[in-house]
Design a protein around this nucleic acid. Structure first.
Length: 225
DNA sequence: TCATTAAATTGTT
DNA sequence: AACAATTTAATGA
């Protein structure tokens, strides 16, 4: 799939840009491929670009300022992140690791700021994304360690198909292995397997080889409370 | 296209 | 963590 095609179909922000803005973005983006397990961005590095996942799956681990607990989030294809460090011109506060073969797109800071100054829809997208992330973070901070594996997996799956952060038409089929779910939910693969079966019994999802079908988003959302 | 083999993923202990 | 079973992907006739 071409770069333009993947941006159009997997991101929520690229389609809302003017055509000349899209052209410049396509010119300025540069992509890098990472093998499974590779470090994409390291905590402490100065942020110089906005990051997007074109292909694959990345895990972002945020170190809590007060404790040693690291809360993790999955970033599937179409996710864009790192605007926080970019806006404040700070160092990255988290590590980003490729969970499988992953292609990362980088938008230079100047391009990012240019869009920020120029495009109202782009600002709208960023606002929605920041708002959604804040909500996720609060919800997780309350009970991250307390949730049972089923609830953690439910929350993890919901984040991966979040229609606000990704493109509007959220897919019902999620290509992810149980091992990767384990990494994201911070549980063993065996426990992930068990939790997935439990959620399947509740008719919230159906599991396939290398994939999960989301059957009931609302039900999953309640499970994660 | 089909059969064989390797690799990836899942199920179980 | 280890192992067996199953599914998919790759290979070659």
């Amino acid at each position: 799939m071409s770069l333009e095609q993947s941006l159009l179909t997997t991101t929520a922000w690229f389609p809302v840009l003017e055509s000349d803005e899209q052209e410049r973005v396509l010119r300025d983006l540069h992509s890098t491929c990472y093998p499974p397990g590779a470090m994409i961005e390291r905590k402490g590095e100065l942020a110089t670009s906005w990051l997007g996942v074109q292909e694959g799956l990345a895990r972002i681990s945020v170190g809590n300022p007060d404790g040693k607990l690291a809360s993790l989030t999955g970033m599937p294809a179409g996710s864009w992140f790192g605007e926080g460090s970019l806006l404040k011109h700070e160092k990255r506060r988290y590590d980003v690791v490729a969970l499988r073969a992953t292609t990362i797109l980088r938008m230079p800071e100047v391009t990012f700021n240019w869009l920020l100054d120029r495009s109202r829809p782009f600002n709208r997208y960023l606002l929605d994304q920041l708002n959604e992330r804040a909500g996720q973070f609060i919800g997780r901070a309350e009970s991250d360690r307390l949730l049972d594996p089923e609830a953690r997996v439910a929350r993890c799956l919901l984040e991966l198909v979040n229609p606000v952060l990704l493109s509007r038409n959220t897919p019902k089929r999620l290509d992810i292995t149980q091992e990767e779910i384990g990494y994201l939910a911070r549980i063993s693969r065996q426990r992930a397997n068990q939790a997935l079966r439990s959620l399947e019994d509740s008719k919230l999802i159906s599991v396939e080889y290398g994939a999960v079908h989301i059957l009931n988003m609302e039900g999953l959302a309640e499970y994660g409370q």
